[in-house]
């Protein structure tokens, strides 16, 4: 309770929560908020030469290269990006943390087997792996999320592994063992609380890379299928108009940045508040 109170006192937390709140509610209430359907192409949405319109009274943020309302596409795109960002990243964090802790705590043969496997995954080009995986499974939003998770868990596993190693060498772990604590208790009460800040920061950092990887996959035609909008594929679809209509690239880009940044800020604040030696030091 008091942690929550202290969090609310930070301005940056209020800012981040507000941004995340806006994005989440627009994803949930997209049909109610969006002025148009995201796939509808408007005849009056393009100039006579066929180029996209700038912001005007009907299309508040202008239209894209096919004459679709950008604002509506951004609002619906929040659904895809949020799902990918949270689901794919969440799964990656779970898998990575699990294997990282196992490898770091047990060490020995199991530990080195897991770590050599992550080396293998890292040596393999992530994009190639993603392309192969999505070629095997027919693309859908969940498959894309899973594919991204399969690629991204490796980094988390490495970080968690090294941290677990260094924490298990600490004297308070031996002290706890000398009291008669079981491995489960040591993991739950002493190792996990110390890993939490690293996992938090890495998962917030992961959100931005995940959203960008989804954009890349969408661009290659193996991610989210058009005409379903995602922030990533809005950028890629419109990149040819970058010079004449920069807002088409800038606005979805801004959405990704704000989304990722808010989670980063929130993760940072949470990490500081969870660490009793750092608590209350706002920076």
């Amino acid at each position: 309770m008091s942690t929550l109170k202290r969090l609310i006192k930070r301005k940056v937390v209020i800012f981040s929560v507000a941004i995340i709140g806006i994005i989440v509610s627009s994803a949930i209430f997209a049909p109610l908020i969006a002025p148009f359907a995201p796939e509808t192409q408007f005849r009056e949405g393009l100039t006579l030469e066929g180029s996209p319109l700038g912001p005007n009274s009907k299309f508040i943020l202008g239209t894209d290269l096919l004459g679709r309302d950008l604002l509506s596409r951004l609002i619906y795109g929040a659904r895809t990006s949020l799902l990918i960002g949270l689901l794919a990243n969440g799964v990656a964090v779970l898998i990575g943390t699990f294997f990282g802790i196992i490898a770091g705590f047990l060490r020995g043969r199991i530990g080195s087997a897991i770590m050599r496997f992550t080396d293998l995954m890292m040596a393999f080009p992530a994009l190639l792996l993603a392309i192969t995986l999505s070629a095997i499974f027919s693309p859908s939003l969940f498959i894309v999320a899973l594919v991204i998770a399969m690629v991204n868990w490796v980094q988390i596993a490495r970080v968690v592994y090294t941290q677990t190693l260094s924490i298990s060498e600490k004297e308070f772990i031996e002290a706890s063992r000398s009291l008669g604590a079981t491995n489960t208790r040591i993991l739950r009460c002493h190792i996990l609380p110390h890993l939490a800040p690293f996992i938090l920061v890495w998962s917030t950092l992961g959100i931005s890379t995940t959203v960008l990887l989804e954009a890349t996959l969408s661009y290659l035609g193996i991610g989210v299928r058009p005409p379903t909008p995602s922030w990533g594929n809005i950028i890629f679809e419109n990149q040819t108009y970058f010079q004449t209509a920069p807002w088409l690239v800038f606005l979805p880009g801004l959405a990704i940045v704000m989304f990722a940044l808010s989670f980063n800020f929130l993760g940072d604040a949470l990490r500081d508040e969870l660490d009793p030696t750092q608590r209350g030091r706002e920076n």
């Binding site: 600490k170 004297e171 308070f172 031996e174 008669g180 079981t182 009460c189 110390h194 009793p276």
Partner: peptide, 22 residues
Amino acid sequence: MRTSRREMQMIFQDPFSSLDPR
């Protein structure tokens, strides 16, 4: 062994590292 540990305890040299800071 774990149950017997309640009868035998240890005090460590460095109280800065033998207590979980969290």
